[in-house]
Amino acid sequence: MSQPLDEAATARLSQADKVFTSDLSIDEFLLLESVGFVPLGLVMGTSVYHIGWQPQRRQQSQELQVLTGAMYTARENAMGRMQAEADALQADGIVGVRLEWRGHGVSAEHIEFIAVGTAVRFTKSPGQFRRPDGRAFSSHLSGEDLYKLAKTGYAPVAFVLGNCVYHVAAQGFLQTMQQMGQNVEMPQWTQAYYDAREIAMSRMQAEAERDQATGVVGVSFVASEWVWGAHTMEFYVSGTAVRKIGDAEPITPTPVLAF
C-alpha cells in the first residue's frame, strides 16, 4: 500500500546516502547509535483538509461519524505519505514521529496535518525491527525511550491512533435551573466524554491489533473543539504499538561523579 512519492521528495531523498537529516537531539542520536540505529533522513507527510459539516440533534449525544472519518483520514493521509518516504529510503523504522496540525489560514474549516519523524536503519541486523508486514515501523517515542524499549526486548510496530467526534446533548432548561449554584455532576457531559474517549481508544486498539502488536505504550489523550463549538468535540488518542522480539537486558546504571 506504499504511495507514489512526489518529485521533490524523490529528489531530496535521493541525497540521503550522502548526507542525513534528522530532528534527533544529540542525546537521542548517541543512544540510538549505541543500540545499532543510524539515521537515514527526515521524513514527512502532509494533508490539507477541509473539515466538513454534519447535521446534529441538539438534544441527543451521539458520535458524528462523517466528521470522525474526515479527521481520521486527514491524519492517515499525512502518516501514509511519511511512511512512503521512509519505505523509499528502505528504512527499518521512523522514530520521534510528531503528528501536528495548523490552521490553513483561508478558512477556519481548513487545517493542515503534518507528520514528521526521522527514518532509521538497524545496522546490526537490517530488517529485524521492521513490522510483520515488512514495512518500516513508526513510533512517537523519543530516542531515549526507544533505547530503553529495545533493552526490554520490545520493538515498536506502528504509531497508532484513534479518534471520535462527538456531539454532547444540550441540557434542558429545568436541569440548568436545578443545578444552579449547586455542587452537582453533569451526567450527560460525563457520559458523553466517557463514551467518546472509549470509542477513540477502541479504534486505537483495533489498529494495534491489526498491525499484530501486543501492546501500546506512551498513550496520550487530546480533546479539541476545532470549529464545531463547545457541544461538539474531537477526542483523539495516540500511542506506539509494540511487540516482543527478544529477552530483556538488565539496565545497569553507571555511577557518575561530577566535580
Binding site: 500500500m1 458520535e63 470522525t68 481520521y72 492517515e76 470509542i199 477502541s202 483495533a206 489498529e207 491489526r210
Partner: peptide, 12 residues
C-alpha cells in the same frame, strides 16, 4: 475495509 464502530480506518 477495516471499519471500527462505523468509521473506516483503512481501505485497500
Amino acid at each position: 475495509c477495516h471499519a471500527v464502530r462505523g468509521v473506516a480506518l483503512q481501505t485497500m
